[in-house]
């Protein structure tokens, strides 16, 4: 098992050997995000800006005008919040080829607590025109997404996790922008998830199966642009859709799925699980996942409850 941050840095080093437009612009966190690996391999294409995230974005934009395609290295929270305005004007509105790597996204960031937990990034970044938003599930997909992003023209936000999860995709997996991935067949309940949470939801489905609930598991790597047909096909025949995300239930994956189903006139109940409009706290990973209902066991419990109630409400 490998953490996405390690995969990110290793893949960049690999790609940078062949592509001299790859750069990393760091905000004094290279030894957390693992960009230090890149710094050692390509010192000339590593820019240490220091603790100045807005400035990082501006500098990365400037570099992009010279044909570079820089990756930003900092915690997601400091990009999507602290540096949002430069991302908006200099990156998104100009369609600059800047790659926003949101490291340490979600709840699990080494016990740093709510100041560092980015639980609104998908909602915020998804609202931004021009931006591609991707949340890979495991090490295999993370590598594929990093490769894809390096070759892409225009801005990309990639939601990356600090710690490893059980891989769910085969090593020969091909990332396809927009398409959803059915990780487990079954029904009539569809569990829809994104990012590393999809791996825990996959485990939850195994627990549910043991209890006689046969759930389909759908992973949505591309939050934007979503191939809606692919999502609709993936949940076809399901009578209850439950979204589960390591993110607030407002405006992220749950919002995306609910909006998509509604605009296609598909009248199945959608239950949104995630952070129920609340901040989280410091604590070990297992504690947080359990307390906030995101561990495989807790997901299984909540899904059971939702299926029994069959109510389209958000449950925390």
């Amino acid at each position: 098992m490998k953490a996405q941050r390690d995969v990110w840095a290793e893949t960049l080093v690999e790609v940078a050997g062949l592509d001299d437009t790859v750069m990393v612009v760091d905000g004094d966190l290279a030894n957390s995000t693992k960009a230090d690996l890149f710094a050692k391999a390509f010192p000339d294409r590593f820019v240490e800006v220091g603790i100045a995230e807005q400035n990082m974005v501006g500098i990365a934009f400037g570099l992009s005008t010279l044909g570079y395609r820089p990756w930003l290295s900092t915690f997601g929270v400091f990009l999507t919040h602290r540096a949002l305005d430069p991302i908006r004007m200099l990156v998104s509105q100009t369609h600059a080829s800047v790659r926003l790597a949101g490291a340490y996204s979600g709840l699990l960031n080494g016990s740093s607590g709510k100041t560092h937990q980015d639980i609104e990034d998908l909602a915020i970044m998804r609202a931004m025109p021009n931006l591609t938003v991707i949340a890979p599930v495991d090490e295999v997909e993370a590598a594929a997404v990093v490769r894809w992003s390096c070759a892409h023209d225009g801005p990309v936000y990639v939601r990356l996790a600090r710690d490893a999860v059980a891989p769910v995709l085969p090593v020969d997996y091909m990332f396809e922008l927009g398409s959803v991935v059915v990780l487990r067949h079954g029904g009539p309940v569809a569990l829809v998830s994104t990012g590393v949470q999809s791996s825990r939801v996959f485990d939850a489905a195994e627990l549910l199966a043991a209890q006689g609930i046969d759930a389909r598991v759908v992973h949505v790597p591309t939050i934007k642009p979503l191939d809606e047909t692919s999502l609709l096909a993936a949940i076809d025949g399901c009578t209850h859709v439950i979204t589960i995300e390591e993110h607030t239930i407002i405006g992220g994956l749950g919002g995306l799925v609910a909006e998509t189903l509604t605009s296609h006139g598909i009248a199945v109940p959608v239950t949104r699980l995630g952070l129920a409009d609340s901040w989280s706290e410091s604590g070990p990973n297992e504690f947080l996942l359990d307390k906030y209902g995101l561990s495989a066991g807790r997901v299984a419990e909540r899904v059971t409850a939702a299926v029994l109630a069959d109510l389209p409400t958000a449950v925390h």
């Binding site: 501006g58 400037g62 005008t65 010279l66 305005d85 908006r88 004007m89 200099l90």
Partner: peptide, 23 residues
């Protein structure tokens, strides 16, 4: 360079000048 939200142009210019240096 696009502008309008004040305070961002110098960072953009730093990135451009740095890119010129590197290239």
């Amino acid at each position: 360079v696009s502008s309008g939200s004040l305070g961002q142009g110098l960072s953009a210019a730093v990135g451009i000048a740095l890119g010129a240096q590197k290239r």
